[in-house]
Design a protein around this nucleic acid. Structure first.
Lengths: 139, 139
DNA sequence: GATATTGGTAACCGCTTGGTTACCTATCTG
DNA sequence: CAGATAGGTAACCAAGCGGTTACCAATATC
């Protein structure tokens, strides 16, 4: 699951926001977010697949931590949509890079995906295809 | 529909990315993204509800334009998740504000929504609730 | 060793989503 | 006016999502 779909769910946004203030176990997160534990567990698994969180087993407990590098695609899109005076600066992306390296000691899960950004984008479909009248304003 | 859910769909991300390079009509977008026109039309409606695009009728044509102000919630979340050295600076949010004003001459559609950011966020559920043993690492 | 705690997985279920085709209105053009 | 073009809406359908309960394995504790 890509980071965008992962962040589409309000509960998952709550989870990542919570983990931004420190890692936590599943029971803790369950206590805070009144849905059943299996639901939380599955949300966390999706977030991990999206590269937004990572887990570390300590005995019978599993500690989930925010993985800020997984936010790259989101930051990239924001940058791409920024337009002429980009609201998302390159400095910001550099900050993310640093973040990735800083937490890079146990990114087992991150290794499963080739790279957390720039999905295939599919069809070549976009010839300039000039049309008789309107079609482009570049407002 | 909130901006996060709106951006969860790859096709919708393609649409906003396309509109970032200039407004376009529905037929144009349909020609570029091989799905049927009704599908495109519905995606655009969802994007408009999310505050990410706006439409302007010109005769029988409807021109869709990117509405950068709708990205506020996304930028806010990124800022909230940024941690100590925030990857998304306040300067970026200022940039978005400016962007909203700059394109503010014909935002008819924007007036139909109360404000394009900061959804309710629901439950108050989060008392500090200190627990006996682990629960917080502040990694 | 018995029991409690942590947490993942499986099976099921209702709702939403995204796609399609068919149809309709409105505007432009010959 | 007749036809073509632009675009929204309705009805339908398959697939995915998020929730639940039930169950299981593993670790900690008495």
């Amino acid at each position: 699951m890509d980071p965008f779909a992962a962040l589409a769910d309000p509960l998952r946004r709550d989870l990542v926001a919570r983990l931004a203030r420190g890692s936590a176990r599943v029971v803790d997160l369950t206590a805070e977010h009144d849905v059943s534990r299996p639901a939380i567990s599955r949300h966390l698994r999706l977030l991990a697949e999206a590269g937004l969180v990572s887990a570390e087993d300590r005995g019978r407990e599993r500690h989930y931590r925010l993985e800020r590098g997984g936010l790259r695609p989101v930051a990239d899109l924001l940058a791409a949509l920024g337009g002429a005076a980009p609201p998302v600066t390159d400095r910001m992306l550099d900050g993310l890079e640093l973040e990735v390296r800083r937490t890079g000691r146990d990114r087992r899960a991150a290794r499963t995906r080739p790279h957390p950004h720039s999905e295939p984008h599919s069809q070549p479909h976009s010839e300039p295809h000039s049309q008789p009248h309107s079609q482009e304003d570049t407002a």
